[in-house]
Computed example of a mutant assay.
Amino acid sequence: MSFDPLYKVHDAAKVGQLPEKLYRLVVERFPLVTEGIKRVEDASGLKYPYFYVEPSMVVSTSAAEFTQFGIFFARTIPVVGEDNLLRVVVQITAPLVAFGLKGTIHAILAHEFLHYLELVSRIVKMNIVSDEISGTLFEGRYADSGKLLEERAVFKSDPTLIKHITTRFPEGFRDLKLEDKAIKLWMDKGLPMIKVPIDSNVIKIPVEAMARLQVEQQVRDKIAEFESVKLRRRKGQPGYV
């Protein structure tokens, strides 16, 4: 039986956590997600990791900026299962599916794919035990885009997708219309929310689990190819030492 990425959305609707109209909207617009997944796979030559739609709005808060909050429309999460195997999962939120434009949805899916590749790369090299803590929302956004592989290397066959990414992720994701809709049509209506303190955004993975991450040779080879392009680009930049 195939995995249904909308299973949590279906369950939330059944127990009344999501209004019927909003539930139908998410289901009707979900093909934009599957289209974006295929687009990322075609452009990169790699399969997208496991993904599912979270029927909640995920927001980050900061003690240093208590009047502000950020919205996570998608997250890439390493998960250690009961079998002690490590898997990388992309969580896509229902507000993104319901209110995001096609270009925005595809850009976010591609951006999370870059997170996936970066995380797999670091685990394969066994140089990740914990990620650094970001103390403010600004630092979190900056760190989010500072470590990723070069999108022009990963998605070189799809210049329009590259444009979507660079337009919406200049220094962290910004889409004011989408954020405004999410606040007015989701948060203000008291729909399900998950709050994540930005300073707890730390990845901790047991070494034994990292050793059990199953990475196909094709993925390893592709990541090495993408990283070599990134390295060549840096060497060509002024001031590179």
Score class of each variant (00 low, 15 high):
L85K: 14
E65A: 01
P49R: 03
V90E: 09
V53I: 01
A74P: 07
E65N: 00
G70R: 04
R75H: 09
F73D: 01
T67K: 11
T76W: 04
F51C: 11
I71N: 06
F51S: 12
Q91D: 12
E82P: 13
F72H: 11
Q68T: 13
I77M: 11
V80F: 06
S60Q: 13
M57W: 01
N84S: 14
Q68E: 15
G81M: 13
D83C: 07
A64T: 12
T67W: 13
D83T: 08
Y52S: 11
N84V: 08
F73N: 01
E65G: 05
F66W: 08
S60L: 11
A74F: 02
A63F: 10
D83S: 10
S62V: 01
F72K: 07
F73P: 03
F69C: 06
V89A: 05
Y50T: 15
M57Y: 03
V80I: 14
F73R: 04
V88K: 02
S62M: 05
L85S: 10
G70P: 07
R87M: 07
V89Q: 10
S60T: 12
S62F: 07
S56Y: 11
Y52A: 06
G81Y: 11
I71Q: 03
R75E: 14
S60E: 12
V80L: 07
A64L: 15
N84D: 14
F51P: 08
N84C: 09
V88H: 07
I71W: 02
V59I: 12
Y52E: 15
V58K: 04
I77A: 06
Q68L: 14
V90M: 08
V59S: 04
F66G: 02
V58S: 02
P49V: 04
L86A: 05
P78E: 06
L85H: 13
P49T: 05
F73Q: 01
A64E: 15
F69T: 02
I71S: 02
S62P: 03
R75A: 14
G70I: 03
A74E: 10
R87P: 01
M57I: 09
T61L: 11
E82Y: 12
E82R: 14
V79R: 12
T61N: 04
G81P: 00
E82V: 12
F69R: 09
V89K: 05
Q68F: 09
I77W: 04
V79Y: 08
F66Y: 11
F72C: 01
Y50R: 15
P49W: 02
L85W: 02
P55C: 07
R75N: 14
T76V: 11
V59P: 06
Y50W: 14
F73K: 00
F66L: 07
A64N: 12
E65R: 01
I77D: 12
R87F: 02
E54D: 15
F69K: 10
R75P: 04
V88I: 15
A74W: 09
T67N: 13
L85P: 00
V59N: 05
V80D: 07
D83G: 09
A63S: 14
V80T: 10
F66I: 08
A64Y: 14
V58W: 00
P55F: 06
E65W: 03
V79F: 09
Q91P: 05
T67Y: 10
T61E: 10
S62N: 03
G70A: 09
A64I: 13
A63T: 13
M57P: 02
L86V: 10
P49H: 04
F66A: 12
T61W: 04
